[in-house]
């Protein structure tokens, strides 16, 4: 951060957004505040277009399928007049055997200001950020850098998802600090859970992870959370929010629970369970939801579910992230 003029703020010193672990509280709060202001700036307008990122290029590089994340990054960029380009691994030179590093360098050399990366390997966006930081980019000048945003890497992190969840909680509950949030389901394979655990703790919320022992990752004892294997006990304690996670069958190679039916009975949010929640409690799901497995259809469609609010908040949060990464002078 440079402290040239304190009267206009000094920016939040964000160079890349790779994880919520290590994101400082004032940075997280600034991103959430900016997201709320973005929503205000666009409310009630016929023209949803801001000139803020005119002339800047955002490339989404997705090695995994995605609907809401890719679309909301693209919408966020377009609403701020950035040029957005989508690259999916299956339709690019990746399918001819090009390495991750070469693909990233190619996109940077082609004039990218921001690279939004989703990759099945944990840590891939970190590697790209480190590679790109060590080469000069002719279109960005001596000081410039290509900003990298992690849009989900393996089972590691998905920081913008955690930010949009926090934005949704702030809108629905009026606060995040002091709130009790239960995160339920496949924690082991969930980058959403890890990003949320760190961000919510940073913002002062109390987090309880609820999962069968087989679906908790190694090292979870070091996270700033409480752990339970009993969903009913946690729901009885009256959480302010319940975040249901999808069981990620595509990442499971082995028996983590006896059957889908048993999982649904023990860890699914049924209508009866949701009825026991306090009136103000919010139900979140990062999507895509498997109805009847981790969440009952009636609960997903109920007024306490904030699933479509989350998607809307996702656009505003991603606008805030792109704004802080790209709008100001370069962060050294």
């Amino acid at each position: 951060m440079t402290g040239t003029d304190t009267s206009t703020g000094t920016g939040i010193g964000l160079r890349h957004l790779l994880s919520t672990d290590g994101l400082r509280r004032e940075q997280a709060v600034a991103l959430l505040d900016t997201a709320a202001n973005m929503e205000q700036a666009l409310t009630g307008r016929t023209v949803r277009k801001l000139p803020t990122l005119r002339g800047r290029t955002v490339v989404t590089l997705f090695y995994e399928n995605s609907t809401r994340t890719r679309v909301s990054f693209e919408v966020a960029g377009k609403w701020m007049s950035a040029d957005t380009i989508n690259v999916s691994a299956s339709a690019s030179s990746v399918s001819k055997g090009e390495s991750l590093r070469d693909t990233a360098s190619t996109l940077a050399a082609a004039g990218t200001d921001c690279l939004v990366v989703r990759h099945p390997a944990s840590g891939a966006p970190h590697r790209i950020a480190a590679w790109l930081d060590h080469v000069a980019h002719s279109h960005l000048g001596a000081e410039g850098h290509v900003a990298v945003v992690n849009a989900g890497d393996g089972t590691h992190e998905h920081p913008t998802q955690a930010l949009l969840d926090a934005a949704t909680l702030r809108a629905r509950l009026g606060r995040v600090e002091g709130a009790h949030v239960a995160v339920v389901g496949d924690i082991l394979h969930s980058r959403v859970a890890r990003s949320n655990a760190h961000l919510l703790a940073t913002l002062g919320a109390r987090v309880t992870l609820v999962a069968p022992p087989t679906l908790l990752p190694v090292g979870v004892a070091g996270w700033p959370v409480e752990i339970s294997h009993d969903l009913d006990a946690v729901l009885t304690s009256g959480p302010d929010a319940v975040m249901m996670l999808r069981v990620q069958a595509e990442r499971m190679h082995g028996g983590f629970f006896p059957s889908a039916r048993e999982y649904a009975i023990r860890f699914g949010l049924s209508e009866a369970r949701a009825d026991r929640l306090p009136d103000h409690a919010v139900v979140l799901h990062p999507g895509p939801a498997v109805r009847g497995m981790e969440i009952a259809s009636a609960v997903a469609d109920s007024s306490r579910a904030a699933i479509s609010d989350q998607v809307t908040a996702g656009v505003h949060v991603r606008m805030a992230v792109l704004y802080h990464l790209l709008a100001g002078e370069d962060v050294a």
Partner: peptide
């Protein structure tokens, strides 16, 4: 672009 990112 001339200053650190401003708060909105």
């Amino acid at each position: 672009r001339l200053r650190p990112t401003r708060a909105l």
